[in-house]
């Protein structure tokens, strides 16, 4: 139970960053941290004590394997996380070239 609560604390740290930081790079970092906590909680739910990694040995039978379904979900989510982070970086560098700052409040004031 402690592990789940610690995972949620990591999620809250990321949410705190998204709410309070004003730097675009810091916001991207906070979003990545939220993603990491979600991956970890998905894999923790599927873990089984003394289970094997989900690769079947064709010779033997009747083993305990950990749940492959949350792992498959997290696998696709990790690659999507890379794509979204890279796209956020593209937006950030483009805004920096135009406004010479990463501050989101300044960017909102300097519209146009």
């Amino acid at each position: 139970m402690t592990v789940y609560i610690l995972c949620f604390v990591l999620f809250l740290v990321g949410l705190y960053g998204v709410i309070t930081r004003r730097n675009l790079i810091k916001i991207a970092i906070s979003l990545s941290i939220m993603e990491f906590s979600i991956f970890l909680i998905l894999v923790l739910i599927g873990y089984i004590d003394n289970g094997l990694a989900p690769i079947v040995d064709p010779g033997s039978s009747a083993q305990i394997y950990v749940d492959p379904l949350p792992q498959a979900m997290a696998l696709t989510a990790i690659v999507i996380g890379l794509a979204t982070t890279a796209m956020l970086m593209a937006i950030a560098i483009r805004l920096y070239r135009k406004y010479k700052t990463f501050d989101i409040r300044e960017i909102r004031n300097l519209r146009g």
Partner: peptide, 20 residues
């Protein structure tokens, strides 16, 4: 597909840096 997508993003960042 994955290799092409990641490489496209990286190369477009490099081109943007060179041009600017």
């Amino acid at each position: 597909e994955v290799a092409g997508a990641i490489l496209t993003i990286f190369l477009s960042l490099v081109i943007f840096k060179e041009e600017s």
